[in-house]
Amino acid sequence: MATGLAGRSVIITGGGSGIGRAAALAFAAEGARVVVADIDGDRADAVVKEVAEAGGDAVAVVGDLSEQHVVDQVARTAVERFGGVDVLVNNAGVMDRMSAVADVTDEEWERVIRVNLTAPFLLTRAVLPHMLAAGRGAIVNTASEAGLRGSAAGAAYTASKHAVVGLTRNLAVMYRKQGIRTNAIAPGGTATNITVDVVEGAHGPAAIRPLLAGAGRVSRPEDQAAVILFLASDAAEHVNGAVLPVDDGWSAV
Protein backbone atom coordinates (compact mmCIF):
# COMPACT_ATOMS: atom_id res chain seq x y z
CA MET A 1 0.00 0.00 0.00
CA ALA A 2 1.41 3.36 -1.04
CA THR A 3 0.71 5.61 1.95
CA GLY A 4 2.27 8.85 0.72
CA LEU A 5 3.13 9.72 4.32
CA ALA A 6 6.88 10.15 3.95
CA GLY A 7 7.95 13.61 5.10
CA ARG A 8 4.52 14.57 6.38
CA SER A 9 3.93 16.17 9.75
CA VAL A 10 1.74 14.12 12.08
CA ILE A 11 0.36 14.97 15.53
CA ILE A 12 -0.66 12.01 17.67
CA THR A 13 -2.31 12.62 21.03
CA GLY A 14 -2.02 10.02 23.74
CA GLY A 15 1.12 9.06 21.84
CA GLY A 16 3.01 7.80 24.86
CA SER A 17 1.26 4.46 25.22
CA GLY A 18 -1.26 2.02 23.81
CA ILE A 19 -2.83 2.84 20.46
CA GLY A 20 -1.06 6.22 20.33
CA ARG A 21 2.38 4.70 20.77
CA ALA A 22 1.66 2.05 18.14
CA ALA A 23 0.44 4.76 15.77
CA ALA A 24 3.52 6.93 16.36
CA LEU A 25 5.82 4.02 15.51
CA ALA A 26 3.74 3.08 12.47
CA PHE A 27 3.72 6.61 11.02
CA ALA A 28 7.44 7.03 11.70
CA ALA A 29 8.13 3.75 9.91
CA GLU A 30 6.44 5.27 6.84
CA GLY A 31 8.79 8.26 7.00
CA ALA A 32 6.39 10.69 8.66
CA ARG A 33 7.63 13.16 11.28
CA VAL A 34 5.71 12.81 14.49
CA VAL A 35 4.68 15.05 17.37
CA VAL A 36 4.04 12.74 20.32
CA ALA A 37 1.63 14.57 22.62
CA ASP A 38 0.94 13.01 26.00
CA ILE A 39 0.26 13.96 29.60
CA ASP A 40 3.01 11.59 30.77
CA GLY A 41 6.42 13.01 29.93
CA ASP A 42 8.39 9.82 30.56
CA ARG A 43 6.20 7.81 28.23
CA ALA A 44 6.26 10.48 25.52
CA ASP A 45 10.05 10.71 25.71
CA ALA A 46 10.35 6.92 25.54
CA VAL A 47 8.36 6.82 22.30
CA VAL A 48 10.44 9.63 20.81
CA LYS A 49 13.54 7.60 21.68
CA GLU A 50 12.07 4.50 20.03
CA VAL A 51 11.37 6.47 16.87
CA ALA A 52 14.87 7.94 16.83
CA GLU A 53 16.50 4.55 17.35
CA ALA A 54 14.59 3.28 14.32
CA GLY A 55 15.89 6.19 12.24
CA GLY A 56 12.78 8.36 12.43
CA ASP A 57 12.07 11.92 13.54
CA ALA A 58 9.81 12.73 16.47
CA VAL A 59 9.39 15.29 19.22
CA ALA A 60 7.45 15.15 22.48
CA VAL A 61 5.03 17.73 23.85
CA VAL A 62 3.86 17.11 27.39
CA GLY A 63 0.70 18.42 29.01
CA ASP A 64 -3.03 18.14 29.51
CA LEU A 65 -4.65 18.53 26.10
CA SER A 66 -7.86 19.82 27.62
CA GLU A 67 -5.93 23.03 28.38
CA GLN A 68 -5.74 25.59 25.57
CA HIS A 69 -2.11 26.57 26.18
CA VAL A 70 -1.01 22.93 25.77
CA VAL A 71 -3.03 22.62 22.57
CA ASP A 72 -1.38 25.78 21.26
CA GLN A 73 2.04 24.37 22.11
CA VAL A 74 1.33 21.13 20.26
CA ALA A 75 0.22 22.92 17.10
CA ARG A 76 3.07 25.41 17.31
CA THR A 77 5.64 22.62 17.72
CA ALA A 78 4.39 20.80 14.62
CA VAL A 79 4.56 23.97 12.54
CA GLU A 80 7.93 25.17 13.82
CA ARG A 81 9.64 21.79 13.85
CA PHE A 82 8.09 20.13 10.79
CA GLY A 83 6.71 23.01 8.73
CA GLY A 84 2.99 22.41 9.13
CA VAL A 85 0.35 19.88 10.09
CA ASP A 86 -0.61 17.25 7.53
CA VAL A 87 -2.23 14.69 9.82
CA LEU A 88 -3.92 14.97 13.20
CA VAL A 89 -4.70 11.83 15.20
CA ASN A 90 -6.99 12.67 18.12
CA ASN A 91 -6.39 9.53 20.15
CA ALA A 92 -5.98 10.55 23.81
CA GLY A 93 -8.84 9.48 26.05
CA VAL A 94 -9.93 8.35 29.49
CA MET A 95 -12.53 5.85 30.65
CA ASP A 96 -15.35 6.55 33.04
CA ARG A 97 -16.33 4.38 36.01
CA MET A 98 -19.09 2.62 34.08
CA SER A 99 -21.49 4.82 36.05
CA ALA A 100 -25.16 5.06 35.17
CA VAL A 101 -26.55 8.58 34.89
CA ALA A 102 -27.97 8.64 38.42
CA ASP A 103 -24.51 7.84 39.81
CA VAL A 104 -22.31 10.07 37.63
CA THR A 105 -20.60 12.78 39.65
CA ASP A 106 -19.93 16.22 38.21
CA GLU A 107 -16.20 15.48 38.45
CA GLU A 108 -16.46 12.21 36.46
CA TRP A 109 -18.65 13.78 33.78
CA GLU A 110 -16.54 16.90 33.34
CA ARG A 111 -13.21 15.03 33.21
CA VAL A 112 -14.38 12.49 30.63
CA ILE A 113 -16.07 15.07 28.41
CA ARG A 114 -13.12 17.45 28.70
CA VAL A 115 -10.49 14.87 27.71
CA ASN A 116 -12.47 12.78 25.22
CA LEU A 117 -14.42 15.51 23.42
CA THR A 118 -13.25 19.04 24.22
CA ALA A 119 -9.56 18.25 23.73
CA PRO A 120 -10.07 16.86 20.19
CA PHE A 121 -12.23 19.88 19.38
CA LEU A 122 -9.60 22.31 20.65
CA LEU A 123 -6.74 20.66 18.79
CA THR A 124 -8.71 20.29 15.58
CA ARG A 125 -9.62 23.98 15.73
CA ALA A 126 -5.95 24.83 16.29
CA VAL A 127 -4.63 22.87 13.31
CA LEU A 128 -7.38 23.64 10.79
CA PRO A 129 -5.92 27.00 9.71
CA HIS A 130 -2.68 25.24 8.75
CA MET A 131 -4.49 22.51 6.84
CA LEU A 132 -6.72 25.05 5.10
CA ALA A 133 -3.68 27.07 4.06
CA ALA A 134 -2.10 23.93 2.61
CA GLY A 135 -5.32 22.86 0.89
CA ARG A 136 -5.18 19.38 2.35
CA GLY A 137 -5.15 17.42 5.59
CA ALA A 138 -6.29 14.23 7.25
CA ILE A 139 -7.84 13.96 10.69
CA VAL A 140 -8.41 10.60 12.37
CA ASN A 141 -10.33 10.45 15.63
CA THR A 142 -10.36 7.53 18.03
CA ALA A 143 -14.02 6.98 18.83
CA SER A 144 -15.07 3.67 20.38
CA GLU A 145 -17.51 0.83 20.21
CA ALA A 146 -19.20 2.92 22.92
CA GLY A 147 -19.79 5.56 20.25
CA LEU A 148 -21.92 3.09 18.29
CA ARG A 149 -24.06 1.58 21.03
CA GLY A 150 -25.29 2.24 24.55
CA SER A 151 -24.03 -0.95 26.16
CA ALA A 152 -20.25 -0.67 26.11
CA ALA A 153 -19.46 1.84 28.87
CA GLY A 154 -20.92 4.27 31.38
CA ALA A 155 -22.97 7.36 30.61
CA ALA A 156 -20.11 9.85 30.43
CA TYR A 157 -17.82 7.78 28.20
CA THR A 158 -20.72 6.73 25.96
CA ALA A 159 -21.86 10.33 25.52
CA SER A 160 -18.32 11.52 24.82
CA LYS A 161 -17.67 8.92 22.13
CA HIS A 162 -21.05 9.40 20.45
CA ALA A 163 -20.11 13.07 20.30
CA VAL A 164 -16.74 12.23 18.73
CA VAL A 165 -18.62 10.34 16.01
CA GLY A 166 -20.80 13.40 15.41
CA LEU A 167 -17.81 15.72 15.36
CA THR A 168 -16.08 13.45 12.85
CA ARG A 169 -19.01 13.49 10.46
CA ASN A 170 -19.56 17.23 10.78
CA LEU A 171 -15.92 17.98 10.03
CA ALA A 172 -16.03 15.67 7.01
CA VAL A 173 -18.97 17.58 5.54
CA MET A 174 -17.77 21.05 6.47
CA TYR A 175 -14.26 20.79 5.02
CA ARG A 176 -14.38 18.22 2.22
CA LYS A 177 -14.27 20.93 -0.46
CA GLN A 178 -11.11 22.30 1.15
CA GLY A 179 -9.28 18.99 0.78
CA ILE A 180 -9.53 17.93 4.42
CA ARG A 181 -10.73 14.43 5.27
CA THR A 182 -11.96 13.39 8.71
CA ASN A 183 -12.57 9.78 9.72
CA ALA A 184 -12.66 7.78 12.91
CA ILE A 185 -11.94 4.32 14.19
CA ALA A 186 -14.25 2.66 16.70
CA PRO A 187 -12.09 0.21 18.64
CA GLY A 188 -13.51 -2.71 20.51
CA GLY A 189 -11.61 -4.18 23.42
CA THR A 190 -7.93 -3.32 23.06
CA ALA A 191 -4.98 -4.26 25.27
CA THR A 192 -3.84 -0.86 26.55
CA ASN A 193 -2.95 0.61 29.94
CA ILE A 194 -6.34 2.35 30.31
CA THR A 195 -8.06 1.08 33.43
CA VAL A 196 -11.69 1.14 34.55
CA ASP A 197 -12.14 2.12 38.19
CA VAL A 198 -15.61 0.69 38.69
CA VAL A 199 -17.65 0.93 41.86
CA GLU A 200 -18.52 -2.67 42.60
CA GLY A 201 -22.21 -3.19 43.20
CA ALA A 202 -23.17 0.03 41.43
CA HIS A 203 -26.01 -0.06 38.92
CA GLY A 204 -23.94 0.82 35.85
CA PRO A 205 -21.39 -2.02 35.93
CA ALA A 206 -24.09 -4.51 36.92
CA ALA A 207 -26.23 -3.50 33.94
CA ILE A 208 -23.41 -3.45 31.39
CA ARG A 209 -21.33 -6.54 32.21
CA PRO A 210 -23.88 -9.10 30.98
CA LEU A 211 -24.07 -7.24 27.66
CA LEU A 212 -20.33 -7.50 26.94
CA ALA A 213 -20.42 -11.20 26.10
CA GLY A 214 -20.43 -10.50 22.36
CA ALA A 215 -17.46 -8.17 22.49
CA GLY A 216 -15.16 -10.50 20.56
CA ARG A 217 -11.40 -10.84 20.79
CA VAL A 218 -9.22 -8.22 22.43
CA SER A 219 -7.08 -6.51 19.80
CA ARG A 220 -3.49 -5.30 19.96
CA PRO A 221 -2.75 -1.57 19.77
CA GLU A 222 -0.96 -2.30 16.50
CA ASP A 223 -4.23 -3.55 14.98
CA GLN A 224 -5.87 -0.19 15.69
CA ALA A 225 -2.81 1.77 14.56
CA ALA A 226 -2.79 0.03 11.18
CA VAL A 227 -6.30 1.29 10.46
CA ILE A 228 -5.46 4.81 11.65
CA LEU A 229 -2.48 4.78 9.28
CA PHE A 230 -4.67 3.68 6.38
CA LEU A 231 -7.30 6.36 7.02
CA ALA A 232 -4.62 9.07 7.15
CA SER A 233 -2.84 7.84 4.04
CA ASP A 234 -3.25 8.58 0.35
CA ALA A 235 -4.65 5.07 -0.05
CA ALA A 236 -7.82 6.38 1.63
CA GLU A 237 -8.06 9.64 -0.32
CA HIS A 238 -11.76 9.08 -1.10
CA VAL A 239 -12.67 7.94 2.42
CA ASN A 240 -14.24 10.81 4.33
CA GLY A 241 -16.74 10.78 7.18
CA ALA A 242 -16.30 7.07 7.85
CA VAL A 243 -16.49 5.59 11.33
CA LEU A 244 -14.73 2.26 10.98
CA PRO A 245 -15.23 -0.39 13.67
CA VAL A 246 -12.06 -2.29 14.55
CA ASP A 247 -13.74 -4.71 16.90
CA ASP A 248 -13.66 -8.31 15.62
CA GLY A 249 -17.26 -7.97 14.47
CA TRP A 250 -18.70 -6.73 17.76
CA SER A 251 -20.66 -3.98 15.99
CA ALA A 252 -22.25 -6.64 13.77
CA VAL A 253 -23.68 -8.60 16.70
Rank of each mutant, 00 (worst) to 15 (best):
A215N: 15
V239S: 10
V62G: 07
R33W: 04
V36I: 08
R125K: 15
G201I: 02
L231G: 07
G83E: 09
V34F: 12
R181N: 03
R181P: 08
I185H: 13
N116S: 06
A24E: 09
A126L: 08
V71S: 05
N91P: 00
E200G: 10
A23C: 04
P120H: 00
S9P: 15
T3E: 07
A32R: 06
A138K: 02
L123G: 00
V87E: 05
S151P: 10
H203N: 14
E80C: 06
W109F: 13
G56K: 09
D38H: 00
T105P: 10
V101R: 02
A232Y: 00
L5E: 04
R169A: 11
A143E: 06
E110Q: 14
A78Q: 10
A29T: 11
R97N: 14
N193Y: 11
G63K: 01
N240I: 03
V47S: 06
I139G: 05
G4Q: 03
A215M: 15
R136M: 10
A235M: 08
D248C: 11
D96M: 01
V94G: 06
L128G: 06
A153S: 15
A225M: 03
A22Q: 00
V246R: 00
L171E: 08
W109C: 09
A46F: 11
R76D: 13
Q178A: 04
G63M: 05
H69P: 14
V127Y: 13
H238N: 12
A213T: 12
D234L: 07
A54L: 11
G63I: 05
G83S: 03
T158Y: 08
A58D: 08
D42L: 15
T190C: 15
E107G: 05
V101H: 03
K49M: 05
N240L: 01
